[in-house]
Design a protein around this nucleic acid. Sequence first.
DNA 1: AGATATTCCTGGAGGC
DNA 2: TGCCTCCAGGAATATC
Length: 267
Amino acid sequence: MPELPEVETVRTGLSRSWIGKRIDGVELRREGLRFPFPEDLEKRLTGRTITAIRRRAKYLLIDLDNDDILLSHLGMSGKWTLDASDCEGKHDHVVIHLDDGSMSVYNDPRRFGVMDIYRGKSHKLLDHLGPEPLEEWPASDLYAKLQRRKSPIKICILDQKVVVGVGNIYACEALNRSHIAPTRISNSITMKECEVLVNEIKIILSEAIQVGGSSLRDFAGVDGTLGYFIHQFRVYDKEGAACDCGGTVERLVQGGRSTFWCSSCQL
DNA sequence: AGATATTCCTGGAGGC
DNA sequence: TGCCTCCAGGAATATC
């Protein structure tokens, strides 16, 4: 579900409520999500105070007062709810009880999410990740990576080794705004086009963060509020609709996933 | 190494 | 109403 703007929206929401709170209890309702939970997860969380919440790519990094880090990835359908009134939902997998008496609930129907705890600099899932698009990310870095590859550009920008945080929606939207066809083979993309694309990715992610991300089926902020960026979509899930240029939005499948684009203005 | 297909899982939508 | 198939915001893994 969540791409960088949605995860960032969750990070902000969790930060407001969690920082400075102590975890008084943890309930793990199943063995794990995408991967098994570490055996000592409950023990390592209980009694700890949350000191900060960071984001790396689409991962939430929850810093604890003993230098352990709780890692949470929302997968396609994961959702954190703060101040939850109940935790008996069918897919309520993890419940955290805080010292103010509140409950935070992690719900994830498809269970593609990840929950792990680690200490130190690196984690297996974070090791290979590419640059953060909203931090230092020069177009020359993207250009160099695209030169070495021979996949369609859409596939490349979804690859977290090339750049992190861009998922299917924002990949489609950024390519449309950049007037680059998703089918273009990566090593045919010029430096000039990389500059445009890097710029558009930065802009679209920033704009989406400003309005709380995009709410399609599952996504909502930690208090249930919806993200409004869906109203800014120009191509995503709009097959047959008119593009701004007067052309018609088309759909194709790349890497088993839907791509929406306009062949009139994306070349 | 890089490209591609497969895999995990549930639920909603649409066809009949 | 029910049953079926297809599709969904991710990304590790195996295979060539």
